[in-house]
Write a protein that binds this DNA or RNA. Structure first.
Length: 127
DNA sequence: GTCTTGACTAAGC
DNA sequence: GGCTTAGCCAAGA
């Protein structure tokens, strides 16, 4: 079928980076997710490192809850003595996510929850 | 095209 | 839980 001038945006191929950013935006306030989870939600299994790469090159100007993304052990993936670490920790605590001995309790704050929320997400993006 | 890097992870102690 | 090692895979040089 031929495309009209209006048809441009609908099937715009999302880049991996765009999908990752979209996934990060879905993290609810007061919750956290891991790099691996974000990759999975974005439809990019086994690309946890890509999530980190994308976040690194994403301008701070884009409103994105990047601080809600932590690694699989519940830790902030920055050196503990860095400004970035402190910044992330402060933002998390501002949302009520406490770090206990440098770790977030993933059992309590992880999103999506393994039991139900992930399934819903993956089903919904099917169409 | 090859080599190195890295905001990662899972597995084995 | 911590530490090490081996896989992983896209970006940059």
């Amino acid at each position: 079928m031929k495309k009209t001038a209006k048809a441009k945006q609908r099937s715009a191929p999302l880049t991996d980076a765009q999908r990752i950013i979209g996934a990060v935006k879905k993290i609810p306030r007061g919750r956290v997710s891991t790099y691996g989870n974000i990759a999975e939600v974005a439809g990019l299994p086994r690309r946890a490192r890509l999530v980190g790469t994308v976040l690194r090159q994403t301008p701070a100007s884009t409103r994105l809850p990047w601080f809600r993304v932590i690694n699989s052990s519940g830790r902030i993936s920055f050196p503990v003595d860095s400004d970035a670490y402190e910044s992330q920790r402060a933002k998390l605590e501002a949302e009520g996510i406490e770090l206990i001995r440098g770790r977030v309790d993933l059992k309590r704050h992880a999103w999506p929850r393994r039991d139900t929320e992930l399934d819903e997400l993956l089903w919904k993006m099917d169409d």
